[in-house]
Design a protein around this nucleic acid. Structure first.
Lengths: 339, 339
DNA sequence: GTATTTTTGAGGTGCGCACCTCAAAAGTTG
DNA sequence: CAACTTTTGAGGTGCGCACCTCAAAAATAC
């Protein structure tokens, strides 16, 4: 049986009231007594029963994911996993919800954030680009005692674990290494595509990509980034143009989550087979991998992302340190064999 | 606020005692009343507060990992993660321990299993090869109410989630695809190495490997599996022999967890650079990836493995269904960029 | 030394639920 | 309809802890 507070009181030679004071940091305890209790804790290996603590405190957790309102398949996958997490975290007294917002409008987003009530929301995960407005709003949330993590987007603050997502520089580097290896020594140009280069993550990926290609694959030349803006016709025009100028394109790297448009359009304009690498696991990319339309997917486990964000928020509220090895989001390489 | 049993009683128009009878399946309740309560549960979305339940029931979980007593680096990594899990699951009233055993001796292992007491052990994760003795012992454990999962080794029963680990056939296929792609069209022979081919996992990996190589890379010829038996000198002799007979070896696939001996020895006998793929993330394989001594690692996240085993055991004891998407162990491809 | 402040102890209540007992109410049987 | 049997309700206790009050003991000040 695990020792209880009562056992601890006996071991430390104090009363339950004093144990309570020490455990909960209440005032009016001599330093000597605190030490005595802490030593007893070490000796008998006392660990608070979190379930009982939360029960007595009537604590529950209400978390919210703020996601873009316009979305591709990857967002649908995320929403699905949030629903799943909602069920599995119900056991731990955590309620999880998702809200779709026009995250690209910093003012609307900031307004929404200021409207959040600390009574009904203990933590939020925000998937939105950086902006001064949002940064301020986040700081005000923190002041009001609402925990925040940046989810997939935004500028991660170094050293803190307030960002949930992969290291995008490393992700770009990984893509580059794969394109390099898969090219098997052939020379050629690499077409690099993104929905937009405004996003911080695309910029990071591009930097990581170029670093590896330039260092390790002198035979490959990455072209300047091309933006689809989610527009099929535009993409087609750009591709036709690029291929006209560079008939020796041998690879495609799609940096943003929405891979459908570039993958479809490139098959219309490219004559020779290319090495194609895209990001994120979605129904489309899965099917494309299986059918051989693309060669590899650089992914982050979306279920893990969601759960990790929740666990980090929860740990912060409980004043615990999340398990670093569990919360590190891995850069997954998917090929058709390990789907 | 979440509805409590009291709220449920009001909603269903019955007393708390009846709620208790229904929730805990006690006898003496009319079917009509049961229906009434269940409908009320649906209506107000009642979910039992697991923390309170476990508190009232004084329930705690004691789990044990049974691991081989002779071990390579991968086992050390596993043990480290078990220690880590021990800390993080303490919050959930679960105690986790690891025991090293001569798992290759079915009689000793079976004897140990029979000696387990259901009072002090609620679940175990076994990493041991299949044998009739062990299979029987496991069945007796289950009869005595001790939950069991097979951990990494053994013959997974189809359809049940009593196996924690990757699909080894797919892992072998993944290795093959990578060797194929990384070879860049060159022809050659592939040296396939294992510590022993007795183990079920090596056999599966080999099958998956051959399937892909034969189907997709006719220019590559996998040689018959070579067994190191953990013996450096033996391995060296075999390698020298093999290279003498097959000077055109262009790739190495190490199927078992211990990659140190084959990777070191091959560098002594191979003249030309090879494509080298090994299994499992360990300090050695990490360093080898970084320094370029190997090209890729097929890994399973060992922290995830451990936590998954614990969660599955816990869910079974609670009569819950574990979250399938979380418990699926992914086949990770590691290169130096995504470590 | 006494007066004052600080530290400690004793005890109670409630969190949401399991588990138990006993009595009252509702059904069933002949 | 009485004599059952089955179903339901009322109420209590405890799980391990938080949080509160009040009084007693110990340390400190003057």
């Amino acid at each position: 049986m695990r020792p209880t507070a009562k056992d601890l009181a006996v071991e430390a030679g104090v009363s339950l009231a004093t144990i309570d004071r020490v455990l909960n940091g209440r005032p009016g305890v001599r330093p000597r007594t605190v030490t005595k209790v802490n030593e007893a804790i070490e000796r008998i290996g006392f660990v608070r029963n979190l379930a009982a603590v939360n029960l007595a405190r009537k604590k529950s957790y209400q978390f919210r994911f703020l996601l873009p309102d316009h979305g591709d398949q990857f967002l649908d996958v995320l929403v699905k996993h949030i629903e799943e997490a909602k069920k599995s975290f119900a056991d731990e007294m955590a309620d999880v919800a998702a809200t779709r917002l026009p995250v690209d409008d910093p003012y609307k987003l900031a307004a929404y954030l200021s409207g959040l009530d600390a009574e009904t929301t203990q933590g939020i995960a925000i998937m939105a680009p950086e902006s001064p407005q949002v940064r301020d709003a986040i700081n005000r949330l923190l002041e009001r005692g609402i925990e925040v993590v940046q989810f997939l987007a935004g500028q991660p603050k170094a050293g803190s674990n307030d960002f949930v997502g992969i290291n995008n520089h490393a992700a770009g580097a990984t893509a580059a290494q794969l394109i390099g290896r898969f090219s098997g020594g052939r020379k050629g140009k690499i077409l690099v595509v993104s929905e937009t280069m405004q996003a911080h993550d695309s910029i990071e990926r591009r930097l990581g990509f170029d670093a590896v290609i330039n260092r390790e694959y002198p035979g490959l030349l990455p072209l300047p980034s091309v933006e689809t803006r989610g527009d099929t016709a535009r993409t087609r025009r750009i591709f036709e143009n690029v291929f006209a100028n560079h008939p020796d394109i041998t690879g495609l790297y799609v940096m943003s989550a929405e891979a459908r448009i570039p993958v479809r359009e490139i098959s219309m304009v490219a004559k020779a087979p290319l090495v194609k690498i895209v990001h994120e696991r979605t129904p489309f990319t899965e099917a494309a991998l299986k059918s051989g339309k693309i060669d590899a997917v650089i992914a982050q486990n979306s279920g893990h992302l969601v759960r990790s964000a929740i666990r980090i928020l929860k740990a912060r509220i409980d004043q615990r340190t999340p398990l670093a090895s569990q919360e590190k989001i891995r850069i997954e390489i998917l090929i058709k064999e390990n789907l």
